[in-house]
């Protein structure tokens, strides 16, 4: 049954700690409150998006690992969350091994794509949180996605990593997924008291122009606290600056996609 024209958006940046998981979890949560089904796929072996939504994995739970490596039925890997319209395919530490297990396989970059193809039409948006690396897992993510959101932390190193990531995206476009495009660049951990923040924003804006989201994710401690309570920010503290920022981001993305 096809209900929606699903769009798959990857949240990617090989640099760690730039706000990928925070963005994936909170963006997915805010998109889901308009009562359209949203799926979050956790493709990071650290499984932070999984625990951040309060999902507990035991030996019997099926995860993205089972879907990719063991060809488990996708429906069995989908878990419900505290939000009615948000589902998740969780991750688990064993996904680390997947990088190696995939190597000898045919079409190893297309494993995730095949999984997502089975879900066509069931969800309006599929958001994928990726691992902080440019390995086979991230290639799978980029090959399976329609577009990619790149969170950029307001630090100099972030700019360095950006050019590497753009190269990877170009390679993916050339060999695996010619339709992949950059959905947007998201400035995270912005602090308007710091010149560094302003300058990173200026640099990125000059290069990427209107690809940079108007919404800036400000540094906000509530965003850091929410995962330890297993909740997205909108359930943990809807009045916080972080909640406001992600709400604005979700509506900016919806507006661009309408």
């Amino acid at each position: 049954m096809k209900l929606f024209n699903s769009k798959t958006i990857a949240i990617a940046n090989q640099k760690g700690g730039v706000g990928k998981t925070t963005t994936a979890v909170n963006l997915a949560a805010y998109l889901s409150i308009t009562e359209t089904p949203i799926l979050l796929i956790d493709m990071d072996p650290q499984a932070n998006a999984t625990s951040g939504l309060g999902i507990e994995i035991d030996n019997k739970s099926k995860t993205i690992y089972d879907a990719i490596i063991d060809n488990a039925s996708v429906d069995k890997c989908i878990h419900k969350t505290n939000l009615k319209y948000l589902d998740i395919i969780p991750s688990t530490y064993s996904l680390v091994g997947a990088e190696i297990e995939l190597v000898p396989q045919m079409k190893r970059e297309d494993r995730l794509k095949n999984v997502i193809n089975q879900l066509q039409g069931k969800y309006k948006y599929i958001i994928i949180d990726s691992a902080p690396s440019l390995g086979l897992l991230t290639l799978n993510v980029l090959s399976a996605s329609n577009s990619v959101i790149i969170p950029v932390q307001c630090e100099y190193y972030a700019l360095e990593g950006l050019s590497q990531l753009l190269n990877t995206i170009r390679l993916v476009q050339k060999h695996l997924n010619k339709d992949l495009f950059i959905e947007g660049i998201l400035i995270t951990m912005y602090d308007n008291r710091l010149n560094l923040s302003k300058q990173v924003l200026q640099e990125v804006s000059e290069y990427f122009d209107d690809k940079v989201y108007k919404t800036l994710i400000k540094r906000n401690v509530r965003l850091g606290e929410a995962p330890s309570h297993g909740m997205p920010i909108l359930l943990y503290d809807a009045s916080s600056v972080g909640a406001q920022n992600y709400m604005e981001l979700a509506s900016e993305i919806l507006e661009k996609n309408e």
Binding site: I33, T34, A238, S239, A243, S251
Partner: peptide
């Protein structure tokens, strides 16, 4: 007017 904002605020009104 924006559906996400309406929903977010609605949830807050009910919860808080």
């Amino acid at each position: 007017k924006d559906s996400i904002k309406i929903q977010a605020l609605y949830q807050r009104i009910v919860k808080e």
